[in-house]
Design a binder for these strands. Sequence first.
DNA 1: CATCCACCGGAAATAGGGGGGC
DNA 2: GCCCCCCTATTTCCGGTGGATG
Length: 420
Amino acid sequence: MNLFEHELEERRIFRDMSILSPHYVPQELPHRDKEIRGVTKIIAPVLRNEKPSNLFIYGGTGTGKTCVVKYVIRKLEEFLRSPGRDLRDILVRVVYMNCKIRNSKYQVLLKTLEDDSLNDERLKNIPLEGRTERSLKGMDPADLYDRLFNVVQSNGMNLIIILDEIDMVKKGLNDLMYILTRINDELSSGHVSIIGISNDRRVKSRLDPRSRSTLCEEEMIFPHYNAIQLRTILRQRIEHGFRPGTIDDSAIRKIAAFAAQDGDARYALKLLQKAGEIAQSKLKTRVDLDDVGMARHLVEKDIMTESIALLPEHQQIVIYSIAHLALKGGLYQRLSGISTGDLLTGEVYEAYEANCRALNRNPRTMRQFSEYLNELEMSGLIAMRLSGKGIRGTTRLIRLGYPPDEIIQIVRQSLGLESG
DNA sequence: CATCCACCGGAAATAGGGGGGC
DNA sequence: GCCCCCCTATTTCCGGTGGATG
């Protein structure tokens, strides 16, 4: 088959794949009217040069948190540009960042200052002024603060900082909130507001009470989508992303039903895309139930593979050690005779040390190891609970979130080992 | 009940890497 | 190149916790 012919085949099912991307923000967001109105209301004071309240948005994966915020920001920017209104005195700048990448107070500050929207030549005192590099790396944090203060103050700027996945900020979240309170106290013109987005409620408890009340001046909780709502969302994306008549209604229902278990629209869209790809690769003209079933297995595996492959090397060794022990059966099982798959921290650490030696790596300390376990739990690869009665001392019981043999296979691949 | 155990997790110290200014 | 400052990752130190042991 000619390559171009193949490309044409690619278009049998899909019309526009980008519509299915998790980053795509559609023209309409079904079932989020209330949330959109809420965010709009909170942000609206910028139109009067007044400071909006800080906002904390909480909700599970794929409940539309990021989407709603981006949607409202887009509407705001459209409104500010709309003709016939005199909004020339209003200067609004929005900085969006994902804290998975900007995971410390310093990184957040840096990204804010380096963002294009604060380095517009029309602005006074732009942060990067006088820098040869387009980078402020290595600067004194106090200097960073001054630069932010200057650009906001001298332009009377309404600055909104969106911190997505704010729970990923490991160091200095309290400090960050403190800085934001302070800057607003000191500014005589302009202000800085933040919108924090998280799917982990525990962020709040990690904040001290003052920072908490700063971040949570306003708070919204996004509910999960149910199967019916997911269907609307799917149909909407299909309308724009798929060619007409290329998917069975039963397939849509099945996708919605799978995704409704977690109320997760992102998962639903992933399934939809994968099912489309499967149907396409089989040169079918319609996506049917079988494609959806197969898509589910592939997506599950993709999710696992991806979350393992992105792990730092030592965490991979840890999860590998856990998987190995789980197959062998751990101490707890041998002592109690109950086969729960629970492992004790101590034995996992020993296995980790042994595996490090086998791989010619220096094992990290127990302390660091403990952090690795916490991070693995965060990424959903393991589950931990405190040991109750029956075990001497306090330790954590560790359990894998996925089948051990699959984990072992994936880690081997990722670490570049051959099977054996 | 006193003491040990096995680990947890905060804080400070340290190592290593990068950038700026001169 | 040298010196200084900063960041991140890791180690070191250490008090704390909850259950077991005798």
